[in-house]
């Protein structure tokens, strides 16, 4: 892992993590200008505090589906989940289970982008891994390559869901998709929908989103001072979704 792992406060460092952004609070101080572009100066990342995440809470997953018109086909094998809640439990069932959301980790070494023949999957300058749906040929190699099950193929035609979000397109069949860190919101200087929801009324304030390249950002501060982990760090993909208390 790249980050500094000094654990100053030990396991109880929640005091630092407890600071939560107000929903919809802007990440960039200035109001967004007419023209913006992704830049390498930023490195967007997310931090999830597993201790705060509750088993029955689905605020993040609901918000994601609403914001991004993520299609459901009524077939559990083909429904698309950009973010999902996972229950994990030790095999001997000696300890209580832990609940946490899993989404695309926006890896720094993303195997999905490495295997994509057309560079439809690529890393944007600010570290967000995106699928260019205009270019994806639907070979599905990336789905095989991603260790986190973050990707799905659109199996059927989709239609605009009732009460959907007109700012986000619906899907063409035969193309692969996954979480995009709500890139359209991030470019507006807002936080991803899941983070907003988690910090809203329904959520448990377990998620923080921010810029790792900015040493003063909240996420950088926490990662500097509290022990955090990523899922399957042994694979060397350098995920940018960090977990605290895993």
């Amino acid at each position: 892992m790249t980050m500094d792992r000094r654990t100053v406060l030990g396991f109880g460092g929640a005091a630092v993590a407890g600071v939560a952004l107000a929903p919809g609070m802007t990440l960039i101080a200035a109001p967004s200008p007419d023209k913006t572009e992704a830049s390498g100066d930023q490195r967007w990342a997310m931090l999830i505090d597993v201790n705060k995440c509750e088993t029955n809470c689905t605020a993040c997953t609901k918000a994601c589906r609403q914001e991004n018109n993520v299609p459901l086909f009524g077939d559990a094998n083909r429904d698309i989940h950009w973010i999902r809640k996972l229950e994990i439990r030790d095999k001997e069932h000696k300890r209580p289970s832990v609940s946490l959301p899993v989404l695309c980790n926006h890896c720094e070494n993303p195997p999905c982008a490495h295997v994509c023949p057309t560079e439809a999957t690529f890393i944007r300058k600010d570290g967000i891994v995106l699928v260019d749906k205009h270019r994806c040929i639907g070979c599905r190699y990336c789905i095989l390559a991603c260790p986190y099950k973050a990707r799905s193929l659109v199996y059927k035609k989709t239609s605009f869901p009732e009460g959907g979000n007109p700012n986000v397109p619906i899907r063409a069949k035969g193309v692969v998709e996954k979480c995009n860190f709500c890139v359209h919101l991030v470019d507006e200087g807002k936080e991803p929908a899941c983070v907003q929801a988690c910090n809203g009324e329904e959520g448990n304030k377990a998620m923080v989103f921010g810029d790792l390249n900015d040493p003063k950002s909240e996420i950088s501060t926490i990662i500097r001072e509290v022990k955090t982990q990523t899922i399957r760090a042994d694979l060397g993909l350098k995920p940018h979704v960090h977990y605290k208390g895993l």
Binding site: S32, E37, R124, K125, D132
Partner: peptide, 18 residues
């Protein structure tokens, strides 16, 4: 613009498709 917007994050709000 489509390519630039998707791949480089270029967003010109006054000239967006919306």
């Amino acid at each position: 613009r489509r390519g630039q917007t998707v791949r480089e994050g270029l967003r010109i709000r006054s000239e967006s498709l919306l």
